[in-house]
């Protein structure tokens, strides 16, 4: 808005490096120098939207007083916080190819497994993530006719949950859905909106929960696979640790946890075991009750 009182291109190399280190330490997200221009512009916007007028005063407030409002805005500026169908699809590949076969083996194999496979998307936001999981299982997992799968979605925000329940989406959100799937599973509502089939909507159970609330997370148990993507970056040290502990409690020993593309547990908690799959790093709850 105002042209004065901004850092402009005036962020020094030393300031940029300090910022980059801080942001990495706080969120686990790393920027290369190639991203310098993009980062400068976004920082500029954050300073303009705050009550501070220099990088130094804004950065000091962010760092020393741990102002979560400033951090939230910063993360929003620097990351994609909009969800969409088949986002970071390689993780669903990983689930189908490597994780589900392993989980089945841990549970005695496809013929001996007792009870359903349980998958949780937390946070699920407007539903694209749990519904993507459902679509990929129905279309691409050959055991889906033999094995029961429960899919749950959960989020803290009741507005996004009611939109998830209604499950009507626009072009942006559906961009990556193949035309064939769109025909098969969605009904046009007009005005560029498409609603997901009742069958799939009905099969995904949605819950409202705060991931940091241990008591509220208690009913979430024995999940084989959890997707917790693009939320831990927003949390301070203690909240992200508590969230990690709660996710651990929600998983079966040997269960798998997927974080967002640029996220890592290495800045949060050592309670999970990192495991390398062909498609990237995932985390497992250790199998023994004790390591």
């Amino acid at each position: 808005m105002t042209s004065a009182a901004t850092t402009g291109a005036g962020l020094s190399q030393a300031d940029f490096e300090k910022f980059r280190d801080y942001f990495y330490k706080r969120t686990g997200i790393q920027f290369t120098s190639a991203k310098r221009y993009f980062v400068d512009k976004r920082i500029d916007a954050c300073i303009r939207n705050s009550q501070f007028d220099t990088f130094t005063s804004w950065f000091a407030a962010l760092r020393l007083n741990d102002r979560s409002d400033l951090l939230q805005e910063l993360i929003n500026q620097l990351t994609v916080n909009e969800t969409y169908f088949l986002r970071e699809d390689y993780q669903f590949d990983s689930m189908l190819r490597t994780v589900l076969p392993d989980v089945l083996a841990l549970r005695g194999g496809p013929n001996r497994i007792v009870g359903p496979l349980k998958i949780l998307s937390l946070p699920c936001s407007t539903g694209e993530e749990p519904y993507s999981i459902a679509l990929r299982l129905l279309e691409e997992w050959d055991l889906i006719d033999r094995i029961d799968v429960e899919i749950h979605g959960a989020d803290i925000d009741s507005d996004v949950l009611s939109r998830a329940r209604h499950a009507s989406y626009g072009e942006r959100s559906l961009q990556r859905v193949p035309a064939k799937w769109r025909e098969k599973y969605f009904t046009p509502l007009g005005a560029g909106r498409f609603q997901l089939d009742e069958g799939i909507r009905g099969a995904v159970t949605l819950h409202q929960v705060n991931i940091c609330d241990t008591l509220a997370m208690r009913p979430f148990r024995e999940f084989d696979v959890i997707f917790c993507r693009n939320v831990l970056i927003y949390f301070d040290e203690l909240s992200s640790r508590r969230a990690a502990e709660n996710l651990y409690g929600a998983m079966r020993p040997g269960g798998y946890l997927f974080l967002g593309h640029s996220e890592s547990m290495s800045r949060i908690s050592p309670i999970f075991t990192p495991t390398r799959l062909p498609e990237g790093i995932v985390y497992q709850r250790p199998i023994g009750a004790n390591r």
Partner: peptide, 11 residues
């Protein structure tokens, strides 16, 4: 068989 919904709250 396929996706199942869990209606009752977990015990």
């Amino acid at each position: 068989m396929g996706l199942v919904r869990r209606n009752a709250p977990p015990p």
